[in-house]
Every structure is written in structure tokens, then in C-alpha cells.
Design a protein around this nucleic acid. Sequence first.
DNA 1: CATATTTTATACCGTTAGTCTAAAATATGC
DNA 2: GCATATTTTAGACTAACGGTATAAAATATG
Lengths: 287, 287
Amino acid sequence: MNAKKEQIVNAALHLFVNKGFRQTSIQDIIDMANVAKGTFYNYFKSKNECLMAIMEYVQEKGDKRRVELAIGKKKTDEEVFIHQVAVRMNMNREYNLLSLFESVAFSSDETFNNFMKNQYLLEINWVSKRLCDMYENCTEKNSVDLAIILLSINHHFLHVAKLLNEQVKIEEVIKYSLQRLKLIIKNQPMNEEVFFSPILFQQTNDKSVKEELQNHLNQLLSNVKENEVDSRAEEYIQFLLDELSNENPQLYVMESVSESLKKILDSDRYQEDVRHIIQLFWKWKNH
Amino acid sequence: MNAKKEQIVNAALHLFVNKGFRQTSIQDIIDMANVAKGTFYNYFKSKNECLMAIMEYVQEKGDKRRVELAIGKKKTDEEVFIHQVAVRMNMNREYNLLSLFESVAFSSDETFNNFMKNQYLLEINWVSKRLCDMYENCTEKNSVDLAIILLSINHHFLHVAKLLNEQVKIEEVIKYSLQRLKLIIKNQPMNEEVFFSPILFQQTNDKSVKEELQNHLNQLLSNVKENEVDSRAEEYIQFLLDELSNENPQLYVMESVSESLKKILDSDRYQEDVRHIIQLFWKWKNH
DNA sequence: CATATTTTATACCGTTAGTCTAAAATATGC
DNA sequence: GCATATTTTAGACTAACGGTATAAAATATG
């Protein structure tokens, strides 16, 4: 990441944590970053976009930490799971981002809405997969419902604790909610109807990742078109976009092409975009 | 309610529902209400206060409906309970107020924060009491935890349904969450530790009602002092405030005095304030 | 009819997100 | 080292926001 951009992100992160997102003005950010307004808008189109960059960074850090925690441990290890769930919650709390997930309904920024929605759905998805790993009675069919229940209890317990000015450890909350969730898992009748079908869920989840991927590809395409770069890049991106809307996309070819794209666009300017696109591609492919 | 005020409230309500609270500007409201800016600020000190007035109205309507639903039915009737819970959720959804409860952390308006907090805690309290009515294994000790679990599942299921563009009936969601909650209630070991002690909860809840009551009384007092009204009013209000901070308040005397206050201030100007104060007093007294 | 209150239109304030510009600083290629 | 491109800067600017203030007009009240 560019030095100036890093200055901005650091300042923004610090302010979002200590003042809250809404309470932080762009003026605050550029003052603290010792940077001119133009520089901020050179890197971010809006405050929302700046937040999204930060959240993506937080997300990535969390994903890595979760993988680390699982190394050498059994899939069924509850302690590991608790700490893995806590990773994201701790970060959200640490970075004061908890209630932002709720604000989707009231924002008129579509890109931002999709982004937040995506974050939330991916988290549900991850938790539901992990629950299936751990409990026999947790089937693919009912895992989404159970994941939502777990996350909702966690969320609200933290919320109430905040209202009551009670200090709680996030791991304690998760332990509690998991204990209750297990009562549901163990005692629920077989063949019980579920609320959210994982199919519907998977499709939507799939769809939103795909949309995000298309958005990023399109943006990169227009950037590439504006500035003259290796003409192959344009062709590569267009190919990926075409395949993406194809019913039977050639996954391996796409993978190869995106790797080639990465090599071609390995300048500071596009590095991040491409890295992000490959990550999204990977998410989209794996289901 | 005054005709002009009603115009404003109707317009604001309509806009909050269709555009969302944050997206609605005061200009929007006064344009739609066909009213001058001064008139708006004659009735509400801020947009937040306007919202609070609307929410109070919604709240009252909901409370009445809940009582109606219970008439002639057993306390243990699950169907009644489901519909009672649905009343508030339907209103919140209808009026697009759901996510506002989460926004407390990000507002710098203390009065508004307390108001929202109060609304939420009162709802938890109400649900926990009702759960005790209905299930033997739901004791006073664990009822708060269970209430929060029920509300959190409801809340998040609605949230996810919205993200997935799924149309769901609120009663269906409640039925589902109650089914799961019952699994927890029935199967949880006795003497299990609870997360939120009802005592702590009750105290805080109690405290916030008291604070709200004091705020309203103080406000009314200064209003009454400014405009010359029956001099007894001032004395009455001061008495109520004194008793309120007293350790052993004379409840019956207070009740009598507040009734007298109501009679004296039975003009359009103070009618609503007094009605609200009596309602708060009633809430505070009962526990 | 006289007086008090409410309502109106409008100007105003400070703050916000975001755009734009022209000049200065810095990086890059030869 | 120099010429050319890019980034960065400071600050002016717009439009919208919440909220205040005021003086005149409309309305209600006794």
C-alpha cells in the first residue's frame, strides 16, 4: 500500500474506533493524517469507500487468524471454534463496527449496502459450515438457521451488555450461546422444517459475490482502458467477465487467465485491485 | 393533538417509513406537511425529538393492542403471546424503525440514547415476564437471558430475510424462535448460571425510567415557571421531584398529587406532558 | 374590537460531503 | 541532471444539512 494511503487509512481507523464512523468527518481524517483533501479523494471516492477498505483489511486479518487458530487442531474442537468466532467479533468491537451491519437498510449507497450484506452473509456461511464440522445433528439443511441463531445471540448479548455498562468477555458470550445452541441441536426433532434453505442462501450468497466480482472487473476494465497499459490486460478482463456470465464457466481457464492478469498488471497501480479480484474469484469458485 | 402538529407527525411518519429516518431531512418533512420551519421547531426541538414522539405513539398503540389480545385468554396461551410479540415487531417493521435500536452507540444525543435504550430494555422486561407466565422452567432468574435470546433470533431472522429479499410473516418467525427457545428452556440443566442477572437488569431498568421521569418533570417545571400558571402546579411538581429522590417515597401521596396536577394543567398546552408523566410514574411504581 | 398566540417566509449560521483549480512538490524516464 | 509526468497541496467553492432568529401576517381568544 502507498505511503499516503496508509497514512489516511491509519488515521481513519483510529478515528472510527475512538469517535465512531458517523461522528468522524472527512475533515477529521485528513487533519489527523496530515494530508490534503484532494489526496483523500485521490484514494477514496467517499467516506463509505474508505470504511470498506478498512473493513476489507480487518476481514482479511481475521480470516488469516482463523486459519492459524485451526492449525494442528481437530475440526471438532469447540475451543478452537469459540476463538475463531471471537476473532471477528473482537475485531468488530475493537473497530467499533458492530452496529454498522444494521445500517444497511438506511443507506442509499447501493455499493455500500451490497458490501455490508456480503460481509454478513459470508460470516453466516462460514459459521454454518463450521457447525456442520462439529455436530452430527447439524446437517447442511439446518445449519444456516443454527448459524444465524448463534450469531444473533452473540450480537444481542453484547448489545445488552453495552447498554447495561457491563464489561463482558466475548469468549464468555460465545461459550454461553454455544451451550444454548447445542441444546437446540441435540433436542430438535429430526425432519423439522427449516427457515432459511441453504440452497436459497447459497444462491444469493453466490450471486452477491459474483456481482461484487463483476463490479470490480468492470471498474478495472475502465481504468485499464483509460490509461494505456498492456493491451492483453483488456482482453483478459473481458474474457473473465464473459465467462462469469456464462452458464458453464471454464473455471481452470479462468484461474489461469487471472494469474496471467496478475503478472501483467504487477504495478503499484493495479496490484491491490487484482489481488482483491483473485480473492473474490476464489470465494466464488469454492462452493 | 394539535392540527398542525398532527400534520407534521403524519408527514414525518410517512417519510420515515418510505425513505428511512436518516434519509429524511427536516426540509422534506415540512415540505410534505406544508408547514413553515418555525412551526416544526415550535413542536419539536429536533428531528430526534420528532422521532421519539412518533415512537412513543407507536409504543402506546402497541401496549394497548397487547392488552386487548390478552383479554379473556389464559396467561399460558402461546398463540396470544406470539401475537403480542408480533405487535411490536410489526410496528417496528411497518415504521421502518428496526435498525434504529442499534444506532444508539453512534448517536451523540444523550436524551435520544436513553430513550432508545429504555425502549429496548422495557421490551426485554416485558417478554421475560411473559415467559415466566408461560413456562415452569422459566424462572425469574433465567428469564432475562431467555427473553434476549428470543428477541435476538426474531430480530436477526427478519434481518436476514430482508437481505435475501424473502417475504416472511413475522408470526412465523416468532413461532420458529419460540419453538427453539422451548428446547432450551426444557433441556437446560437446573442451577445453570445465568448471564444477565434480573436484579442488575431491574435496577438499571428502574433507574432509567426514574431518570426519564425526572427529566420530564424538570422540563415541565421550567415551562410552568416561565409561563404564569396556577401557582399550585409548581409546588406539586417540586413535591413529586423531591419524593422521587427520596429513599422511601410516599407512593399514594404522589399518586394523589399527580392526579391533582393533571386537573390543574388540563389545558391543551400541558395535557400531553402530564399524561406522559403519569404514565411514566405508573411504570416506575409497578415493580 | 383588542390583545395574545401561532404561523409564515426568509435570512442566517456553522458544518458537512464532495468538486475544482492552480501551483508546488515529487517521481520517473532518458 | 534535466525534462516530463504524476501526486500533493491549499484553499475556494457548491449544495445540502440541522438549527436559530426575526418580523410580519394569520388566526384564535376574551
